[in-house]
Nucleic acid binder design. Structure first.
Lengths: 281, 281
DNA sequence: GGGATTATGAAATAATAATTCCAATCTGTA
DNA sequence: TACAGATTGGAATTATTATTTCATAATCCC
């Protein structure tokens, strides 16, 4: 038997999907059932599963053997292991990840730490997002002629994704980055009919603050994404969001900020389409 | 028998805790074991559980009977039901978010959609990360003189965060972006003592592929982050990761890629510190 | 269309696991 | 210390469940 036996559920699943079309009818039937009802496989008996799937117990065993297991029992172990891994509730799983990461056991722990930080940030923002502010920000950005996107350093990746997405949605935008050294001039072009998305977290990049101040003095409305009401960005902004990103090993997760940024962008795109349609009709 | 049989896990747990002090020694022992290792009760056999807990199988059955069950089997059902419910809760919650988002009810739904996509991607990668590849990539990058970071378009935000983090960690790196139009020259400087992190997802940016090919022909080892084994990046890479990012409204979540990228970066930083310490000591 | 090969169903059998039983041991009380 | 009642250990028994086997049916290939 040269075929390797799938040890984990994901591999098993992939193997099944791959062979799906070359399997005999009844075996295919139990294969489909297994992927649709993995819990039943984990807990049932050969007879009960076979009955639910509409086949004979022996077919179930043949299925297991085709996959390289020596019987139903060893196939079932994979389905059980899957449940064990997933078993703990979401929060418990996170806590476990985080604990493991913090006791610092090896490289896998580092990875787990970043995953935990990202997940925590996402569930935080999902709970705390201020919906009126969100709507207001969308309205404000939707009517802007050009959207300026302003962020440096660790916030810059978010800005670049916003700019990419705005471009895809055919919304005129201008990313203000440090490279060219022409920021002051670029900022100077903005008018009150435009709008700005500014992103900065403590410690706030001085350039971001300075540029935000300058642009707000020109009367350009600002949507800020930052981390607290003490943020210097908050005072310049017409609408601002407080996003608490968890960090790990000194690097902030960007997942919550990214989700908010993308939602803003796509919502603005949608609002513009709707408005355009109304005007025409 | 007037005592009511606990049907769900929480009730069962409460009942056990309440009677804890009035139970005989061995029964108390198995009770403690059951609350500490509920998964083992769910999946094990009476004999295996008894052995793990250090009691006789008959004690386990007496324990079940004291609680009002008619045997071990019916007690075990409660532990299994718990796993089924727990397991579905998180996925169901996510599915609900996603469903609401997809039926498109307002702007909040857009936000929820992005949060759901990010969460899904994170839990996927957490399950499927190939650890040997991860270790291999870290080793490869840790001994590079300069790390080149290569990504365009939607992958570019990840690259820029990697470059930021590498800089913070004082690891020499070079971000290859389109802006300056000097990519070919920059790529030309790389030697086999360097290394590359290349990131690209379908549809693959032609420039990324071309530059990756060129740099691999110079013998520079490549770590690729991409989305399938059919990716053109995979063939040039020494190590590659398959990251399945969920998308929403046509925009891919970057959260899983970000987490992997940050973990790689920090792990490389850590490995370098360790190696440096060893050399000194 | 006929022979060979593969797939399927159903029941027999083997293996495994739960439960029961009884003797031994412990615990508390007079 | 002796006794009664409760608790425990370990093996025997019963039950359940997985697996094998074999006859039958379907499918493929010539």
């Amino acid at each position: 038997m040269d075929e390797r036996v799938p040890r984990d559920f994901e591999t098993l699943r992939a193997t099944i999907l791959e062979r799906r079309h070359s399997l005999p009818k009844r075996i295919a039937q139990i294969a489909a059932y297994a992927l649709d009802n993995p819990d039943d496989i984990a807990f049932g008996t050969a007879a009960s599963i076979a009955a639910s799937a509409g086949v004979q117990p022996s077919t179930l065993i043949r299925f297991a053997q085709q996959l390289g297991f020596d019987g139903f029992t060893s196939l079932q172990l994979v389905f059980r292991e899957r449940l064990r891994e997933r078993n703990s509730s979401y929060d418990e799983r996170l806590a476990a990840l985080r604990a493991k990461a913090e006791e610092g056991a090896g490289h896998r722990a580092i990875f787990d730490g970043f995953v935990a930080a990202a997940s925590t940030s996402l569930s935080d923002i999902s709970r705390t997002l201020n919906e009126p502010h969100f709507e207001e920000a969308i309205a404000l950005l939707a009517k802007a002629e050009t959207i300026y996107v302003l962020a440096k350093r660790r916030s810059y990746p978010v800005a670049s994704y916003i700019a990419y997405a705005l471009g895809k949605l055919k919304i005129r935008n201008q990313l203000i980055e440090s490279a060219a050294g022409l920021n002051a001039e670029m900022v100077g072009f903005a008018t009150p009919r435009d709008a700005v998305i500014a992103i900065s977290f403590s410690p706030y990049a001085p350039a971001t603050i300075e540029e935000t101040r300058a642009i707000s003095e020109q009367g350009v409305p600002i949507v800020a994404i930052t981390d607290s009401s003490f943020s210097p960005l908050a005072q310049f902004a017409k609408v601002w969001f407080e996003v608490a990103e968890a960090d790990f090993a000194g690097f902030r997760s960007l997942s919550a900020t990214m989700a908010l940024a993308m939602a803003l962008t796509v919502a603005v795109g949608e609002k513009r389409r709707d408005t355009g349609r109304k005007r025409k009709g």
